[in-house]
Design a protein around this nucleic acid. Sequence first.
DNA 1: TTGTAGGCGTTATCAA
DNA 2: TTGATAACGCCTACAA
Lengths: 347, 347
Amino acid sequence: MNYNKIETIQKGGDGVATVKDVAKKAGVSVGTVSRYLNGAEIKEQNRIKIEEAISKLDFKLNPIARYLKTNRTHTIGVIIPTLSDIYATTIVRNLEKTLYDYGYNIIACDSWGSRELEMEKVQLLADRMVDGLILYPCNEDISYLKAINSRNIPVVIVDSAVNNYRCDQVLTDNSNAIYEAVRWLVNNNHKRIGIISASEELFTSRERVKGYYRALEDYRIEVDQELVKTLGYNVESGYQSMIQFLQMENPPTAVIASNYYTTIGTMKAIYDLNIAVPEQISIIGFDNLGLTGIIRPALTIIVQPMEEIGKEAAELLVRRIRGDYEGFPAVLRLKTELILRNSTAQI
Amino acid sequence: MNYNKIETIQKGGDGVATVKDVAKKAGVSVGTVSRYLNGAEIKEQNRIKIEEAISKLDFKLNPIARYLKTNRTHTIGVIIPTLSDIYATTIVRNLEKTLYDYGYNIIACDSWGSRELEMEKVQLLADRMVDGLILYPCNEDISYLKAINSRNIPVVIVDSAVNNYRCDQVLTDNSNAIYEAVRWLVNNNHKRIGIISASEELFTSRERVKGYYRALEDYRIEVDQELVKTLGYNVESGYQSMIQFLQMENPPTAVIASNYYTTIGTMKAIYDLNIAVPEQISIIGFDNLGLTGIIRPALTIIVQPMEEIGKEAAELLVRRIRGDYEGFPAVLRLKTELILRNSTAQI
DNA sequence: TTGTAGGCGTTATCAA
DNA sequence: TTGATAACGCCTACAA
């Protein structure tokens, strides 16, 4: 077959100039070229000759060969449970942006919510010589990281706190997020407030429920366990939880859905049962993502600072890579915002 | 500062075993170890000794050093306009999965919808020695790829066709997608059918409108240009388009929203103006993503095969990397599916 | 089948 | 400041 006419980005072998080629063309040694490339001072005259040679040969430094000496790949591994979860990818997007500005690329891996796959991919990334790792764990047990000891790369955990491995973490202040939501409702005279959360096994869920209890305690409202639903963090569990609330003899007057997907499920239940919001029930949702435009009435909502999470995690990681371990292990707790709209009412 | 207690994945220098170390420990030469690692036949006795040594030293082959000889990084660059667009990331997710199974990792880059950034990142990935590139272009002019001639890496285009660069492409059959939707509506006696698309500059948009015209022509329905809205592919343009339709003296009896975000905008307009679907107007939406559960009534919808796009693109790329250029340049056109639900009515 | 030695493209060391 | 040369970790002739 004739490959001549195939348009591809030309690669390898033939045309790629090396430092050696540049040196020869410029009439200097490879050492001088290398020093030029790394920003050391060289004679003006040589600089010009080298720059000419580079431009003529269209020389590109081979970052992978460079790695052999420097031990830096300028690549960051990112592992998240779902590349198609809009909450997670919003973080990743901002990670990518910040890291790119610092000269790093990200290798993105999807763990498909499986701890096994997460471990496998962490191992693989470590072996592939990434300079650092950002991990959005499926599960708060990441003690397996201790066993991955072939290299020494900083790890920053995002979203979920972990308790059996000392490392930097960038988290939402989940407890406070719910606390503030409850406070808003209490100030509007609500006393029966329901919360839709996930299981006790999930860190974020546990923290959010904790914020709920703390607020009730502060406002001297007795806890009714019937008002705490912990079925899961997906559309279906949100839906089921809300259906259960609405079928109670004495239903809550307000409900807080404590993540994005349960918010969708909650509203789906409201629509199905034809409930008026906020006339019959007040609702507070979570995360200002894709669907906010379409929900009626406009939801009062707890918003996580996803751009900030990505940015902070990236910057922290870069600091660690550069050897700045000040404040290690850092646990950044970023505040949420409560955006008031039309889904809650005074009673 | 005392770093001893910092738990990190151990790296470099100190503890990392090399092929040489394994060879020494096993009492054989590096050549033998290397051959073992690459699957060549070696003496049983040596195999055992090598495997013992590898296990004892916790040896991991350094894939980057290997690259210097083999010229393969087993890394694929992926560039998409928005890492937080659920349509795009659903493709990426399936790309990642398939490529991972073939032993490749992806470096994900977000072009933020900017052609400049896209070019910059393509260049950078090519320089970073990826083995292949998957490009979801912001724009159908990718002729700049011709100029990136430092290497020779296969490129597969996803989603949008391109016309000034010969390469493999994996696309949705956009024209047929809309054709089938129009056909369904015509069979339900609709004659005034509106379409909400993006500008003529966008490839997918142009193709979708083409399918619309082709269907009207086949069914001998005269085209009314007022029924073709090309404001853009986002929620706001979908909203505006639908508002305009609803305010016409003689509004369409059915409307096709031709992407995910315009579908959301369309329904938002419907809710705002309190229109009954399908009693007052029939609606066909696009892409079965996140919000389908929450829209009432359940939408009849055109669904793109996003899993398949990711999988096919990945497999095609791997074939090219392996040197199989059969059928180059391949243009795969994957069919959409029309899922019938409750948002269209017979008239 | 095995060992030896040279090379991949870069950086780092040491004299000059 | 520069040039020559030895690494970095791996693969692969080539010779044994």
